[in-house]
Design a protein around this nucleic acid. Sequence first.
DNA 1: CGTGAGATTGAGGACACTCAACATAGGTGG
DNA 2: CCACCTATGTTGAGTGTCCTCAATCTCACG
Lengths: 203, 203
Amino acid sequence: MLGVGITIEKAAGQTVVVEGDPRTHGFRVLTGALRLYKALPDGRRQVIDFLAPGECFGLIGAESYDVSAEAIGPCALARYRRADLEAALRSNPEFAARLLDAARADLERAHAQMLLLGRKSAEEKIASFLLLFLNRLGFGADQRRIRLPMSRQDVADYLGLTIETVSRTLTRLRQDGLIALGSPQEVLIRRLTELEAMAQGGR
Amino acid sequence: MLGVGITIEKAAGQTVVVEGDPRTHGFRVLTGALRLYKALPDGRRQVIDFLAPGECFGLIGAESYDVSAEAIGPCALARYRRADLEAALRSNPEFAARLLDAARADLERAHAQMLLLGRKSAEEKIASFLLLFLNRLGFGADQRRIRLPMSRQDVADYLGLTIETVSRTLTRLRQDGLIALGSPQEVLIRRLTELEAMAQGGR
DNA sequence: CGTGAGATTGAGGACACTCAACATAGGTGG
DNA sequence: CCACCTATGTTGAGTGTCCTCAATCTCACG
C-alpha cells in the first residue's frame, strides 16, 4: 500500500519532527505511542493528539509540519518519504481515498476536542478522556482497565488543564466511586454509565 | 469541477444541516457567511469555524455530519449531492487532490484553534480572532478595518468565552489603544504589531 | 415613540490556577 | 544493601481570571 517504509526507533521523549520543519516524511506508529502538540513562544503547550500503534501522521500536509511529534515511551515508527507518498497518491486512487478518509477522521476528532476544550468543565474533560481509551486508544486495555502511557503533564496539556487539576479531578472521581486508581498509570472504570453521562455534561 | 450544483438561499439564522443528520450533500458558500458548531445536550455550544464565500463543508465526511451549520446572515449556497461528489472523487484525481488539500487546511486550522482554546488567555484569544479576519476571513475588510458579520455570542462560542468577557476584552483593547470600535460590528486595528505580539502571548 | 434584541458595564462568586509542601517510586553510587 | 537523589504525582492554601447574574445602554424596527 505505502511501498516500503524504513523502520526507525525512538526512545522516551525523543523528538520525531518539530512544528515548522520542512515536511520531508510521513510516519506510522508500529509500537509505542506518540504525542502531537503545538506550543506558544513562552512554552505553553497544547497536545493535539496521541497516536496509538497503526495510526499515522504527516502523510498529507503543507510544506511544513504544523505540529511537533515526540515519543511518549520507546517506540518504533515506519517512515515514508514524502515524494513516495505523493507518487502513490497520484497513481493509486484507492490510496487517495484512504488518505481522505483518514483526514476526515482526524478532522472529526479535532472538532470533538474543540468542543471539549472550549466548553467542558474539568470533570467533564477527564471523564471524556478516560472514555477515549475505551473507544479508540486501547493501549492494552481490557474492557474497563485502562493503562495510560503518558504523564499527567501530557494529559493536562491535552485537556487544557494543569497537572494539579488533573490529579485532583481523578481523586474526586475515585472518591465518588466512578473509578479506581492503581499506580498513576492505571485506571479502572467502575461506573461506566455515570462516567459517560458526566462526559456529556449530564449531572 | 464539481459538476452543477443547485443554488439555495438561506435567511439569517436558518439551519443548513444538523449535527448527526445523514450526510446527503456538500456545500459551498457563494455569498454571506456560515457558522459551523457542535453543541452539548444542555445547550453549551462550540463554534468550530466560520465560512466565508468560496469555502466549503461537508464535501467529505462520514455517514453523518459531525457539526451543524447555520447562516449567520442572508446567504447563498451551492449544494452538491453526495453521490455526485463521490463519483467525481473516483473519476477525477485532480478533484481528489484538491479535496485532500482542503481537508489538510481545515485540519491545520483546527489544530491552531485547539491551541487557542486550551492555552490562550481571553486577551490572546480576542487578539488572535481579530487577526484571523485580516489573514483569512476578509469579509469586506480593507487592510485594517474589520467588519464582523457575526454576533458577540458567536464570537464567544468560537473562542470558548462568554459574551460579557468578549465585550469587556474588546473594551480593554480599545482603552489600551490597540483597536478602535465603531458599531459593534466594526473594529479598526490601530497597532497591528502589538496585537500580533499579544496573540502569541508576547506581553 | 414604544418595544425588543443585542451589546456594554457592574458587582460578586466559583472554578481552575499558582505556589508550595509532601509522598512515592526508580535509579545511582557509596 | 541501604542512603540518597531526582522524577513524577498528590494534596493543601490562597489567588485570580473568567463566569454568573443583573442593570443599563443602544439602536433598529414596528
